[in-house]
Amino acid sequence: MHLDHSPHGPSAVSADARRADGARRALRVGLGGPVGSGKTATVAALCRALRDEFSLAVVTNDIYTREDAEFLLREAVLPPERITAVETGACPHTAIRDDISANLEAVEDLEDEVGPLDLVLVESGGDNLTATFSKGLVDAQIFVIDVAGGDDIPRKGGPGVTTADLLVVNKTDLAPYVGSDLARMAADAKAQRAELPVVFQSLRSEDGVREVAVWVREQLAAWTA
């Protein structure tokens, strides 16, 4: 929706592909998934893998602290001015789906203050299997689950598992210790998602985030094409 075409008009309303000054805005990729599945670790690994190629920023949606933002700052994956925390009023899925205003504001402030940006990663607070991002906030979404959360999660489905543009099954290194059957998880995910991609990853291994980084590069290539 373009409500204002003037070059120095008010900022864009929602998911406009262009900013108020006419420049194409950054691609926004959401990362959601249950508590402890490795969303923040994946964001950190993606930042390390992509920061030399692209101009990046991160928005975190902590549920009741700034811990995720502070983890990213401590790990120094990006300069501090490129990391913003949004407070979510005890309801992380509301802030990424039903009322996205605070997140949109954070994304636009980042573009104003450190831009131009190529990519903004929006990390959801740890939530349940129904939490998905609004298309008004992100252009593509990654849902992160892990093998230790139970190998029946892909079978159970839910909007995150079923509809995310990329499903990441994290912590595959733990599978032998928690009795998770990776082949079964892969088959269940295939049944739920048809042709939508699934990546099994362990961030413990060298370059563990490589496949997800490749996927993000593809999204960026399509966005800027």
């Binding site: 949004v86 407070e87 009023g89 309801c91 802030a95 039903d98 009322d99 205003s101 605070a102």
Partner: peptide, 11 residues
Amino acid sequence: GRFPAGGHAHS
């Protein structure tokens, strides 16, 4: 109350 104007995050 569901009008999406950010109020849900405030007490």
